[in-house]
Amino acid sequence: MIEVNELTKRYGDKLAVDHLSFTIPQGVVTGFLGPNGAGKSTTMRMMLDLDRPTSGSVRIDGKQYGQLHEPLKYIGALLEAKAVHPGRTAYNHLLWLAASNRIPTRRVDEVLALVGLTAVAKKRSGGFSLGMGQRLGIAAALLGDPKILMFDEPVNGLDPEGIIWVRNLMKSLAAEGRTVFVSSHLMSEMALTADHLIVIGLGRLLADMPMNEFIDRNSRSFVRLRTPQPERLLDMLSANGITALQDGAGAWEVEDGDMARIGDLAAEHGVALHELSPQRASLEEAFMRMTAEAVEYQTGAPALQPAQQQEPEPAAAWGAGWKKES
């Protein structure tokens, strides 16, 4: 079990990580989500004792990482692709790692086969593509057959095939009872892989809950209406105590609206409707809304305009992925 307790990292007068506390549940995939610059990588580096916290602590089964004996057998980590000497072959890179933790040499061949790099094992890693570098990093993380795995943005720069491969790998690792901790800045990616979610923004904890709960809490449902007679529609709705908001794209939205009732009312009052549809805001939006105040590098336009800029995906499309898992 990994416990992060009041972890803080200060660079000059800038707080990168701000009294962050959470516990990573065992045997599941935990998504570590936050916008770029939220402090995800800094937190992970402190978990591995690479960076020294300003205050606070990380405990892995009660121990600091630096106190672990042969830590590769305990935690495997992929922090960045290509943390490899370009002149060394993939095989030799894994060989020195294995030697340092007394991992048998045959395990090197095993993990190379597992990530599909056997054919290029004796090639120097300088010529590897980003995807191959990422696979080598994952092979290094798996080398010691660890109970806990940490991946920092593992799908960055991967092609669609590679993304699916990483996704399935993480799920199968968790299915084997391992704890998987994976960071991402993409909610959509996490929705497909994670069972538990930890969201941070500007170094602070924003959410720490099971994925299902996050979806229930944060997915906004509404009814979208389009009409050539907006005044009549609005009069009709307000007379019936229903509030509609303009979405900026010529349509109207009724939060948690009862679609049948609105349709009946429109028929009754002879209001022509061009659209009457149920909508669900995507998790991406929920995530953006949550982190809106905590985004470090704001663009000129307001970060959040719910449901207006993008066509929200139909509920079935985003729900299908995680529902299969639960």
Binding site: A77, H85, P86
Partner: peptide, 10 residues
């Protein structure tokens, strides 16, 4: 090369 993080991880 960034390898120091792999080294210190091990």
């Amino acid at each position: 090369t960034g390898m120091i993080r792999a080294t210190l991880g091990a």
